[in-house]
Amino acid sequence: MCENKRIMTRTHRLFQLMQALRLSTPPATAAALAQDLGVTPRTVYRDIEALRGLGAVIDGAAGFGYTLIEDAALPPLSFDSDELEALVLGLREVEAIGDPALRGAAGRALSKLRARLPESQAHRLRHAVLSAARFTPLPEPGVDVVALRQATWDERRIRFAYTDAEGRATARSVDPLSIAYMQASHCLLAYCHLRADFRAFRLDRMRDLEVLDQSFRPNRVPMLRQYMAAMRAEEATHAEAATP
């Protein structure tokens, strides 16, 4: 048992070191990597050699710093120029409008791509023409968005406290269907059991999330399609009414 735990701990540390190399500005010194990981530089030296033995191409040596050239954790990748721009734009958009967990995930995904692409394409990735930015911060969610996403994937009913635009507080029990960026805020699209209808809830107005044992599987996808169709029909009606 102790040996298995030691092996699992070392494996986890190697994954952490690989991620630190992806995120660091090269060359990353052993001292800086050791500080990030909470280990000694001597441990970093040993782990660098272990990663090299597993197939990672890491340039550098003790006293000079290390640069990740090829990442053995990812398969070979090749993209044309437009595909690279699309990837950067999409991930930058997530960094701009995603919730805190997704913003971090988008940054890590970009670092993994840079580590695996040929240098000519990595250069285009670093200096892409397209980007995305927000100058007005989005309101922070009032609930754990990671737990909310997981409940949505698992098709588990949730309960939370909600305050509407007029300041009225209610307790809601809903079937979560999707999380969407709508009108400068993140919204949960759901079927609300209090109103017996589909509703959108701003995440910054939600509090005290509770994931319940009740499942509504396998209805999430058809329910979401129904909700989106209703939204499109309502939008079409508004557009027709506005036409002179």
Rank of each mutant, 00 (worst) to 15 (best):
R10L: 13
G65I: 10
P222W: 12
G104L: 12
P27T: 07
T243A: 09
Q19K: 03
V174W: 11
S111F: 09
N4M: 14
R149D: 02
R103H: 05
R207L: 09
A86N: 04
R126V: 06
A190L: 04
A133W: 13
E119M: 11
L77G: 00
F160M: 14
R195W: 09
V88C: 02
R205Y: 09
M231P: 00
Y191G: 01
A190Q: 02
M1I: 10
E240V: 05
Q16R: 13
F15L: 14
L37K: 12
L110W: 08
D154Q: 14
Q19G: 06
M1A: 11
R13H: 08
A31I: 01
F201Q: 11
V129A: 13
F160H: 13
R92E: 08
L84D: 03
G55C: 13
L23E: 13
A62V: 11
H12F: 09
Y45I: 10
R172A: 08
P218Q: 08
V57G: 01
G142S: 00
G98S: 14
A28D: 01
P139M: 08
E240G: 09
C2K: 15
Q121T: 05
L74W: 02
P139F: 06
P141Y: 00
L203C: 15
T170S: 15
G107Y: 01
Y66M: 00
F15H: 10
P137I: 02
S111A: 15
G98E: 11
C2P: 14
R42Q: 14
D197T: 15
Q35V: 05
L91I: 00
D36M: 07
R156S: 10
S173V: 13
A161F: 12
T237F: 01
R172N: 07
E70R: 14
A32G: 03
L89F: 14
T11H: 09
L74D: 04
M182A: 06
E140V: 06
S111C: 11
G55E: 13
A86K: 02
A20F: 07
A50F: 00
A109K: 14
G63C: 03
R157T: 14
M228R: 15
I48L: 05
L117T: 04
Q214E: 15
A169T: 15
M1Q: 09
F198C: 11
A171I: 12
A105F: 09
A30D: 14
S24F: 03
A50P: 00
Y162S: 09
P137H: 02
R22K: 01
R134P: 06
V146Y: 02
L74V: 05
R108V: 11
T170G: 02
